[in-house]
């Protein structure tokens, strides 16, 4: 639920915004100059030129309004993105009536930088445009609307309309530099080779023994059990991959940001080296694991550090 200030701000916001381009500024300066010249000299031909220049300004407003009116936009979001790196954001633009020209699509009121360009949209034919955008910082990103901008017809003015389209996106921490090797794997080793549990892996065959009560019946070797007339369990060597649990203790500010970035970079590096990585941050623990899905879990957790987490988990 938006606060009353935000609602007031939305309500006060003009439905269209107009910005003068660089060429438009020069054009306006020339128009004013010619207008002053006409007023000074009384030369009707200058008045005629001035009339055309002013008409072009008015026409720019009318045609640009026609271009951005009746445009529908649908946003296609990626699963996640890293801060400071371009990632693709796709928009499906449909013109419900008439045609549109020279449209630039970008996120409104968002920290995302970048836009997509569509030269022409015919009536009723959806056009998909890719915008390579960059999020400056990590965290959950609230997307409120899409800015539809056009320079049509003459490139003198930039008219923008915002289509309300609420959505959310998780921005993972920037993949920064990680140089310091983490503490030794032993120190952070989560697995325990001293227990019998190291024989419950899926590696080389170590031997058979009698199944004890409470042990997983799926490990029973049925043929040998039948031959021995007792339940025998297969013991296989467990592949012991180094396990690390990375911790983030910083609570806020730039230190937290740097810690998140470094942890994200370290996570990537360790996972690439074949280790399993877990996370301990702000009282939340993720068990060590590996694979792209696990990396995403860690990154999502890092993205939400310092932010209010959504209900039901990390997903936005």
């Amino acid at each position: 639920m938006a606060s009353w200030r935000e609602r007031l701000r939305q309500w006060m916001k003009p439905p269209r915004t107009l910005k003068v381009t660089r060429a438009g500024r020069t054009y306006l300066v020339l128009t004013v100059g010619i207008g002053l010249g006409a007023l000074n000299t009384g030369n009707n031909l200058l008045y005629l030129v001035l009339g055309f220049l002013l008409a072009v300004i008015v026409l720019s407003g009318v045609l640009s309004e026609r271009a951005i009116r009746d445009v529908r936009v649908r946003r296609l979001l990626p699963d996640g993105a890293f801060a400071g790196e371009p990632f693709p954001l796709r928009y499906e633009v449909t013109r419900t009536r008439g045609q549109a020209f020279a449209l630039e699509v970008s996120e409104a009121d968002s920290a995302l930088k970048g836009s997509g360009w569509i030269p022409y949209v015919a009536q009723g034919r959806p056009e998909v445009v890719r915008a390579d955008v960059v999020a400056p910082r990590r965290g959950p990103l609230k997307l409120t609307g899409v800015r539809i901008t056009t320079l049509f017809p003459f490139g003198l003015f930039e008219k923008t309309r915002t289509a309300l389209l609420a959505d959310g996106l998780v921005i993972f921490p920037r993949r920064g530099f990680s140089c310091e090797p983490p503490g030794s794997a032993d120190a952070l080793h989560q697995g325990d080779s001293s227990t019998g549990r190291h024989r419950d892996g899926a590696g080389d065959l170590l031997g058979l023994r009698e199944l004890e009560p409470g042990e997983d019946a799926r490990r029973v070797h049925w043929k040998k059990s039948a031959a021995a007339a007792q339940l025998l369990k297969v013991e296989r060597e467990r592949e012991d991959r180094p396990q690390y649990t990375l911790s983030v203790t910083e609570r806020e500010g730039d230190a937290l940001e740097r810690a998140c970035e470094e942890t994200a970079a370290l996570t990537r590096r360790l996972l690439e080296d074949g280790a399993e990585v877990g996370l301990l941050a702000h009282g939340r623990k993720i068990r060590p694991g590996s694979g792209p899905g696990h990396e995403k879990r860690v990154l999502t957790a890092l993205a939400f550090l310092g932010f209010d987490e959504p209900r039901g988990g990390h997903a936005p």
Binding site: Y47, L48, L50, G51, F52, L54, A55, V56
Partner: peptide
């Protein structure tokens, strides 16, 4: 065409 007409009107 509209700009020309508008220009004449302004004039």
């Amino acid at each position: 065409a509209l700009a020309l007409a508008g220009g004449v009107a302004f004039f």
